[in-house]
Computed example of a mutant assay.
Amino acid sequence: MAGPARLCVTNQKGGVGKTTVAVNLAGALNELGHDVLFVDLDPQGNATEGLGLLEAYDAEPPSLLDALIDPTGVSPEDIVYSHAEMDVVVSNIDMNAAASALAQESGPETRLATLLDGIDGDYDYVVVDCPPHLGVLTDNALYATENIVIPALTEPTSKRSLELLFDYVGSLEMEHDLEIEPIALVANRIETTGEDEAMLAWFEEALPDVPIFRVRKRVALQRAFTAGTSVFEADEEIDMAEVFIDVAEQVEESMTDTEVLA
């Protein structure tokens, strides 16, 4: 039986709502009946906090960094926490030293893949939230998942950030003989302006084979994050929930060859 389908949510440009997209995509996959493992690979621990697990961020070792350095030497119970919607590999303050620590190891970009091979057998999907910059941690996410969901703002700076991302992905593919597939682009925090519409048109032209989903700016998304849940566990109805269901269904459709079990 094939393993779970893996994907990462990445954009090296900060402030694009990457973690919001990652958490709500994972929540949507859970809503569709899938067992989800969420991996917070961001040293800032925003997803760990946004899933109500902030205390784990300051927990004593062993931590996620220890598991990346020695993927077979750390028990899953030390880094995987339960949440109402998904299990979570939490980030930790130690992850701020990840770049320098992993640089001293052989095959530093392969450590997450090895770690997931040992812990993801009980899940249908693995969703990895990347840090907001390129480097060894993002390399780990791309290498381990080979599928990406890209959050982006509808503003001109997104053009350059997407160009840099795809150049970077192309280099990693060549170096490791991979095929990293863009599954979806989530245009985030859309407002009704001419600039937003122009950027949406640019996304469609630049990425003609990548489905584009529109998430409009909603305070309720932040309220769900503050409550430690996705929008699907929130105490209020949020109209953007349906968009995240659409993204999750696109993920299902794109990754059926991984034999995900509903």
Rank of each mutant, 00 (worst) to 15 (best):
M1Q: 11
P4K: 07
L7R: 07
V9L: 07
G15I: 06
G17I: 09
K18E: 03
T19M: 04
V21K: 01
N24H: 06
A26S: 03
G27F: 01
N30E: 05
D35Y: 04
L37S: 03
N46I: 01
T48C: 06
T48N: 09
G50H: 12
G50P: 03
G52D: 08
E55R: 10
E55D: 15
Y57K: 12
D58W: 13
D58V: 12
E60V: 01
D66M: 05
I69D: 00
T72C: 00
T72N: 14
G73T: 09
S75A: 14
E77V: 12
D78L: 03
D78R: 14
Y81L: 15
A84C: 05
V88G: 07
N96I: 10
A97I: 00
A101C: 10
L102K: 06
P108T: 10
R111C: 02
L112S: 10
T114P: 00
G118I: 13
Y123T: 14
D124Y: 01
D129Y: 04
P131F: 08
T138K: 09
Y143C: 05
A144N: 04
I148Y: 05
L153I: 05
S158Y: 07
E163H: 05
D167F: 00
L172M: 13
M174C: 03
E175S: 14
I180A: 09
P182Q: 12
I183Q: 15
L185N: 08
N188D: 11
R189V: 07
E195F: 13
D196R: 00
A206F: 01
P208H: 07
R214F: 00
V215C: 05
V219A: 14
A220P: 01
L221F: 11
A224I: 07
F225E: 11
V231Y: 03
E237D: 15
D239H: 09
M255N: 11
